[in-house]
Design a protein around this nucleic acid. Structure first.
Lengths: 224, 224
DNA sequence: GTAATGCTTCGGCTACCATCGAAGCATGAA
DNA sequence: TTCATGCTTCGATGGTAGCCGAAGCATTAC
């Protein structure tokens, strides 16, 4: 029974933590639920078997997210019923610094702006995303050539894919990786739109004032 | 947490049994869940405390129903999620004889036709129902006088209410009791529309052919 | 009145399952 | 290679909650 899965407090905490649509690692979910990693592992396996969550491997980490909106909807409904009888549940929001906004992930752009960029590309059919695989469309190639002077032959690499979806650490949604992601980040630097922070070891990416405008003009979502 | 309530198999069986909107007694729910009455009592108390079900006392029995459509909706959602992962749950329908259709409940009409009659009265604003309390409207009085020759003074009684909602055993919905319910049943008999079955101890009410037509003309729902 | 039915409460038993420590893999870093 | 990190599996423990027998009320029937 599905309800039994949600019934356990530890699992309920995990699921509530995933309700914002982002993905969380097993360790983080363990911390959210206030249990040890090995206990969390057991719970996560059960939730996955029940079809409530889906894993996504990313390096040494294992990110989990709710399978789809139906699951989220039912959880909403349950929370609604619980609210009527008096019990409410509060959830703590993320608590990270400003490197959420823009940072380097290996060699490409990550953070809010990175996610926003991929969103924009996807919305305008400049790329097509299917799970973790992304491919550049013909319009996408024209767009890159026109606005960023990036040609397809610059992106060829024997072993690395041109496009790849990379799970964003802070936003917990995908941003663009692959040789294209790297080339775009490099181009941003060349255009003086952005640069890595001077602090050693820092992964923060600082956008210049004009760079921010140009970036927004190309990939803005109207919110900023 | 609400989900924990639904999570237990015994409680889940009870709730599923209530999903058709009807009310069931504690004993019946115990049988549905395959547990003893004392265990069921504990479960029902929890479900009631959680706001999922509502009790209604009726003589020695205690009928339970889902509190509202929201509860049913969430249960539907959970069942939907469960269905995706393979597990489905089948529910057995009612299995009673033909006394479902019409029978005597104390001194008034019960069964399918009894429920149908109250439905009809309510739909046409001849009575107003608020939970278990029912009151006759002005239009209702006129209707009774015109079609059944029942006047308000015939219904007065020192201790018994004129109208009362009575939970129907087979339909598990309300039918009309009180002095009005009794008077209407008596009038049906006088008009030779219906009569109690001759078999001793039987509570079945047999409608005559013309009686059925007249009844349908007054309280029909178009289905028969 | 007495008896019977329906439901609840109490007490103790049992079984399941969440929990954690320790060890085992896997991946990535040095 | 060796080490560190992240996660999983194994094994054992313990607490919780479902379960039932027996007794206690409440209501109805006789």
């Amino acid at each position: 029974m599905v309800a039994a899965l949600v019934g356990d407090p530890a699992r309920a905490n995990m699921l509530t933590a995933l309700m914002n649509g982002r993905a969380l690692t097993a360790s983080e979910l363990a911390q959210e639920a206030g249990i040890t990693p090995q206990t969390a592992s057991s719970h996560l396996a059960k939730l996955e078997a029940g079809g409530l969550i889906e894993p996504e491997k990313q390096g040494r980490h294992r990110y989990y997210r709710l399978t789809d909106d139906d699951v989220a909807g039912v959880l909403e409904g349950l929370a609604g019923l619980a609210a009527r009888t008096g019990h409410m549940r509060v959830r703590t929001g993320p608590k990270d610094p400003a490197l959420r906004r823009a940072r380097i992930c290996y060699d490409h752009l990550a953070g809010d702006l990175g996610v926003q960029m991929l969103d924009s590309l996807r919305e305008r059919n400049l790329v097509r995303q299917k799970k973790q695989e992304i491919e550049l469309t013909a319009e996408g190639e024209r767009f890159l050539a026109k606005h960023l002077q990036i040609s397809p032959d610059m992106l060829a690499h024997p072993r690395r894919p041109v496009c790849k979806a990379c799970l964003d650490w802070s936003e917990r949604r995908h941003h663009l990786a692959g040789t294209l992601g790297a080339a775009m980040m490099q181009r941003f630097a060349e255009l003086k739109w952005a640069a890595r922070d001077a602090t050693p070891g820092s992964r923060v990416v600082n956008f210049t004032r004009t760079g921010e405008k140009q970036f927004a003009a190309l990939f803005g979502n109207g919110k900023d």
